[in-house]
């Protein structure tokens, strides 16, 4: 089994890079981040979940069991993780309220889009829109309230940038996943877009790692 496992990685080196990239924010978050900050804790838990999702999906893949439902399911964790992170870091009470209502609404709608054997375009796209919206809300608040002195040393700026890049990079691919990511799609097309999704995820991991890294400045950085 292990042999098959490694074979899989050798066949898809980007998959290996992607799984390793998930470890970076966990390591940085555990050893170099400021553990007192709530956003760090929620995101860290999110990445631990992500790590296990990758592990399980790889094991499934080794046994040639369909693992796509894991990807669909993980979007629920993503909504909760991002929602909590931003809920506790936004001051404007109406933004807080939108995030709360938005998370609940998106989760409920996503339930109706559930699919087990195919990527669910509805779930994946809605989750991207949700992430994009809260990250943009946060940017608006950053500009309106001028609450940090140096934005480059503000962890949630990096996290939000990561979410925005990841979401905009993958949203169209997921929206048309019926065409390009379905089991009926041509393998070269599938892998081209799938690899792009992996790259976007690696970029996201790197941005969050930077965010975790600068979290030690956060306490002195509030204006």
């Amino acid at each position: 089994m292990l042999e098959r496992f490694f074979h899989l990685y050798l066949e898809h080196p980007l998959e290996l890079t992607h799984d390793l990239a998930t470890v970076i924010p966990i390591v940085v978050g555990l050893f170099y981040a400021n553990p007192k900050r709530k956003e760090i804790r929620f995101l860290l838990i999110y990445f631990v979940f992500l790590f296990f999702r990758n592990l399980i999906s790889n094991i499934y893949a080794t046994y040639r069991i369909n693992n796509i439902f894991l990807y669909n399911f993980f979007n629920f964790i993503e909504i909760i993780g991002f929602g909590l992170t931003y809920y506790f870091n936004i001051n404007k009470s109406n933004f807080k309220f939108y995030i709360l209502i938005g998370s609940i609404l998106v989760i409920i709608i996503n339930v109706f889009f559930w699919e087990t054997n195919e990527f669910s375009a509805g779930i994946l796209t809605l989750t991207r829109i949700f992430g994009l919206s809260i990250a943009l809300f946060y940017f608006v608040e950053l500009l309106a309230e001028m609450k940090v002195k140096n934005i480059l040393k503000h962890s949630l700026f990096w996290v939000s940038s990561g979410i925005i890049i990841h979401s905009t990079g993958t949203i169209l691919i997921f929206l048309f996943s019926k065409i390009i990511l379905s089991t009926r799609a041509a393998p070269d097309i599938f892998f081209a877009y799938w690899n792009f999704i992996l790259i976007m995820y690696i970029v996201f991991c790197l941005f969050v790692s930077v965010g975790f890294w600068v979290s030690k400045y956060d306490e002195d950085n509030y204006a």
Binding site: L136, F139, L142, L143, M146, V148, K149, N150, I151, L152, F157, S161, I164, I165, S167, T168, G169, T170, I171, L172, I173, F196, A223
Partner: peptide, 26 residues
């Protein structure tokens, strides 16, 4: 996707730049 990504990067750079400028003025 490429267009969206360019827009995203533009937004991020703009926010970073504009925020720093605001802080300096303050």
């Amino acid at each position: 996707t490429a267009v969206l990504l360019v827009m995203a990067i533009f937004i991020i750079v703009f926010v970073a730049y504009y925020q720093q400028k605001q802080i300096r003025q303050q």
